[in-house]
């Protein structure tokens, strides 16, 4: 049985500001590596976070349209350059005609290889990060370099108090299991371990990130793979990262 959950789930809603998880598809060839895509809507304008590859596109478009007119999607945020993040760029540029693409300055020049010769809608994010305005809200682009990509960013929503962490916090589920919200952190960390030991380059990258986020009020951690961590699990996750050793080159 393939895992498809095509209904979105609202993570935050105060009537003016929404943060939505956009559903799930499991490609047959990548058992367990499920990708999460998210939508932020503020005052009728939208932003898509790591909108992903070709085979998830129809679901993304349909679910996004339930909350915001595709023409009002003003921004696409790419945490880094991997195919599960940027794969459907050509489609996104057509179906969200007003959207500006935000991606690390390191990767902008590689995107034309996806078949985009007109780069007028691509914007470089400098190494130090920045801000994206959607409606009346300002989302903060937080540097998270080498976690795992050399030009890598997270996105913090100060209204929903949700931190999108890209591949950090990625979990790989066993083939007969999936959940959206972490309930048992001790069990969940086993699903995260392999990824963090192999894909992250070194301990120092995590330490820099811990310093970067220490003043943020984070209620929810929303990763691109695996499950969402809330409340006490946010603190547990940060503690777990602090304790990780034998990472990347030291593995």
């Amino acid at each position: 049985m393939s895992l498809r959950v095509h209904k979105p789930y609202i993570l935050y809603d105060n009537n003016k500001h929404l943060f939505v998880w956009l559903g799930l598809d499991e490609a047959e060839a990548e058992k367990g590596i499920l990708t999460n895509q998210y939508l932020v809507v503020d005052q009728g304008e939208g932003l898509l976070i790591d909108p992903g590859g070709y085979y998830v596109f129809e679901r993304i478009l349909e679910n996004t349209s339930k909350f915001v007119d595709p023409v009002k999607v003003k921004a696409l945020f790419f945490s880094h350059q991997d195919p599960d993040v940027v794969g459907s760029l050509n489609l996104l540029l057509d179906m969200f005609p007003e959207a500006i693409v935000y991606v690390s300055a390191l990767w902008v020049r590689f995107l034309p290889h996806l078949g985009v010769l007109d780069t007028s809608r691509l914007r470089e994010i400098p190494d130090e990060g920045g801000e994206i305005t959607i409606g009346k809200s300002k989302l903060r682009i937080i540097p998270a370099h080498f976690l795992h990509s050399p030009g890598n960013f997270h996105l913090y929503d100060p209204i929903a108090k949700i931190l999108f962490t890209g591949d950090l916090g990625a979990a790989v589920f066993p083939s007969d299991e999936w959940y959206l919200f972490v309930e048992d952190f001790e069990k969940h960390k086993k699903y995260m371990e392999a990824f963090h030991h192999r894909y992250l380059p070194c301990r120092k990258a995590i330490d820099k990130w811990l310093e970067m986020i220490k003043d943020l009020d984070i209620q929810v951690i929303a990763p691109q793979h695996g499950a969402i961590m809330e409340k006490e699990n946010v603190a547990k996750f940060i503690e777990w990262l602090r304790s990780l050793d034998k990472i990347g080159l030291d593995h």
């Binding site: 049985m1 959950v5 209904k7 299991e177 959940y179 959206l180």
Partner: peptide
């Protein structure tokens, strides 16, 4: 199998 993907408020699956 047709119901599962379109079931709102789904937050988990196991077997």
């Amino acid at each position: 199998d047709n119901v599962l993907p379109i079931l709102p408020y789904t937050t988990g699956r196991s077997r």
